[in-house]
Amino acid sequence: MDLYLDTADDAAWADLMPTGLFKGITTNPLLAVRAGLDYPTIDWSAKAMRARDLGAQELHAQVFGSVDGYVAWAGALYEAGAAAGLRTVVKIPMTEAGIRAVPAIKALGGPILMTALYHPKQVFVAKALNADFAAPYFGRMSEAGLPAVEMLDQMHEIARGRPRLLVASLRSADQLVALAQRGLDCFTLSPEVAQTLLGDSLTDAAAAAFEAAAAGQGS
């Protein structure tokens, strides 16, 4: 099981990465806006070093802007990861423009992730492109009225481990549990969902009882 923290917020990185739960960090332009960042001006060398210092093994970041700039941006991200000593993964939207940019990005030799998948047919594309990861947007699929669970089953069967499905857009820990029961084992979680993994009211009550007993206050 591999979990990734899905945010560009430095405070969330600092809070949650030291738990040891997360293999890495994923982000994109929308998450950067939510964190108050200007995506085109992010210093990825500094971000990669910060992620490494907090224990991340991987940093996934997304191309943006004109497709003509994808390759240069991807190369810079790979270089930032190499300098920091962690694996950087280039996220590419599963659009026609993104698909057409893949061969040139793959030629750089680094890992890629095809993102924003909504249909099982898109796993065929990711597989044909020899992508390392593909990211279905489970929560958004459900909210769009799609049979998200059934479609994730189909994606999982088609992929058979390559590309690895990195399930995104989860809305709750319950969704995580349900999908893990179906054999999926790679997820990216928002800080809000990640936080729910750190506690349970019954566990907290049991721990408090243990401490009370140790202090001679209970039996």
Rank of each mutant, 00 (worst) to 15 (best):
V125F: 08
E143W: 09
S142G: 11
I92V: 15
K121R: 10
S172Y: 07
L117H: 07
Q154R: 02
G85M: 08
L176E: 08
E79S: 15
F187Q: 07
M151S: 07
F124L: 15
D68T: 10
V123F: 07
E143P: 00
V125C: 09
R164H: 07
L86A: 06
E150F: 10
S142K: 10
A126E: 08
Q175D: 13
T88V: 15
M114L: 15
I112K: 06
I112T: 13
A178P: 02
I92S: 02
G145N: 06
V90G: 01
M151G: 00
D68N: 15
L170W: 00
G110Y: 08
A107R: 04
A144T: 04
R87K: 15
R162L: 12
Y70H: 14
Q154Y: 00
T88H: 07
F124R: 10
R140G: 05
F124C: 12
H119G: 01
L129G: 11
A168F: 05
T115I: 08
L117G: 05
R164N: 01
M114A: 12
P111V: 00
I99R: 12
I92Y: 02
K127W: 07
R162E: 14
A168N: 04
D185P: 03
R87A: 02
M94K: 03
A128E: 14
K106G: 01
V125A: 03
V90L: 06
M141N: 13
I158D: 02
S169T: 00
V149N: 00
V90M: 09
A173P: 08
I112R: 06
K91H: 11
A173V: 14
M114T: 09
A101P: 01
G85P: 03
T115G: 07
A84F: 10
A82N: 12
G139C: 01
L166G: 11
L152G: 02
A80V: 11
Y137P: 06
A101S: 15
I158K: 06
V167R: 02
A72R: 10
G75E: 12
A82F: 11
G69T: 08
L129Q: 09
L129N: 14
T95H: 02
N130V: 03
V123S: 08
L170F: 06
R100M: 12
S66E: 14
M141G: 05
F187K: 01
D132F: 14
E157W: 00
V149P: 05
G161L: 14
A84D: 10
Q122R: 05
L129A: 09
K127Q: 15
F124H: 15
A159L: 07
A82P: 13
S142P: 00
L176S: 08
F138E: 04
R162I: 03
R140M: 11
Y70A: 12
Q122H: 13
W73E: 03
A159G: 06
G183V: 10
V67M: 03
G69K: 03
L113V: 04
G69E: 04
L117T: 02
